[in-house]
Design a protein around this nucleic acid. Structure first.
Lengths: 105, 105
DNA sequence: GCGTCCGATAACGCGCGCGTTATCATCTAA
DNA sequence: TTAGATGATAACGCGCGCGTTATCGGACGC
C-alpha cells in the first residue's frame, strides 16, 4: 500500500458522515463546539500558556478548558463570555436554520 | 401631582441601576435575555400565535416560551437554534468583553 | 532514576435551563 | 353567566455544562 493511498481524517469523517445518519446528526450538531475549540487552542498555544494558566485567567477550571479544546460539549454563553472577559477574544455567532455557526472575524 | 411628573419605567430602572450595584450586576447580566424576549414576542404577536402554538411549532413547551418572553433566563444556544429551525428567525450574537449582545439584522 | 509540568480523564455534586404537568386569574365569545 | 382560550407560574425531575478534586501516562530537565 502506497502512502498516497492513505485517506485523510477529513476524508474518513466525510465518508462516514454520508453513510451513517446517526453519526451525521451528532457530528453536525457539535460543529460549533469544534469551531470554538480551534479558537481556544490557537489563542492559548500562540501565547505559550498552559491549560491551567488559561483556566486561572478566565476563572474557569483546567478540565473545563480541556473539554472546550476537545470540542466535547456545547459551551454555555456564560462560559464563552468568561473566556472573552480575560483574553480579549470575541465570538460572533449566527444562530439560524436550527444551527449555530461561528462567524470569522 | 401632575401626570407629567410620573417617571417612566426606563427612568426608574436607570436610577436604581446607578444606585444599587447588586441590581446593576443582575440587570446588565440579563440584558441579552431581554433582547431575545423582545424578538420572540414580536414574532409571535405579529402572526397571531399563542404561546402554545409557538411551542408546538418549535418543539419547546409553553412554559419555556413564557420564560423566554419574560427574559427570566439566559437561553441555551440549543434553545435558540430550536426557535430558528421552525420560525425562520435568526440571531446574531456578539460575545466580547465578558458580555453577550444581540446584533440587529 | 526522579521530580516536575503537561494535557486527558474519571467521579461526584451543583447550577440552571428545559420538559412535564397542573393550576391560576383574566379575558372573550357564545 | 358559562365555556373556552390565554399567559403566568408553581412543583418536580432531567439533561448537561461546569466546579472540584484526584489521578493517569507522557514529555522534559536535572
Amino acid at each position: 500500500m502506497k502512502l498516497s493511498d492513505l485517506k485523510t481524517v477529513d476524508q474518513l469523517i466525510e465518508e462516514r458522515r454520508e453513510k451513517d445518519a446517526e453519526f451525521r446528526e451528532i457530528w453536525d450538531s457539535t460543529a460549533f463546539a469544534r469551531q470554538v475549540a480551534i479558537i481556544v487552542v490557537r489563542y492559548r498555544t500562540e501565547r505559550g500558556l498552559s491549560q491551567r494558566e488559561l483556566a486561572r485567567l478566565t476563572g474557569l477550571q483546567q478540565p473545563a478548558i480541556a473539554r472546550l479544546e476537545n470540542g466535547e460539549t456545547e459551551p454555555r454563553l456564560q462560559t464563552l463570555a468568561k473566556l472573552t472577559a480575560a483574553t480579549g477574544l470575541s465570538f460572533h455567532l449566527d444562530v439560524a436554520r436550527g444551527g449555530v455557526e461561528l462567524v470569522p472575524a
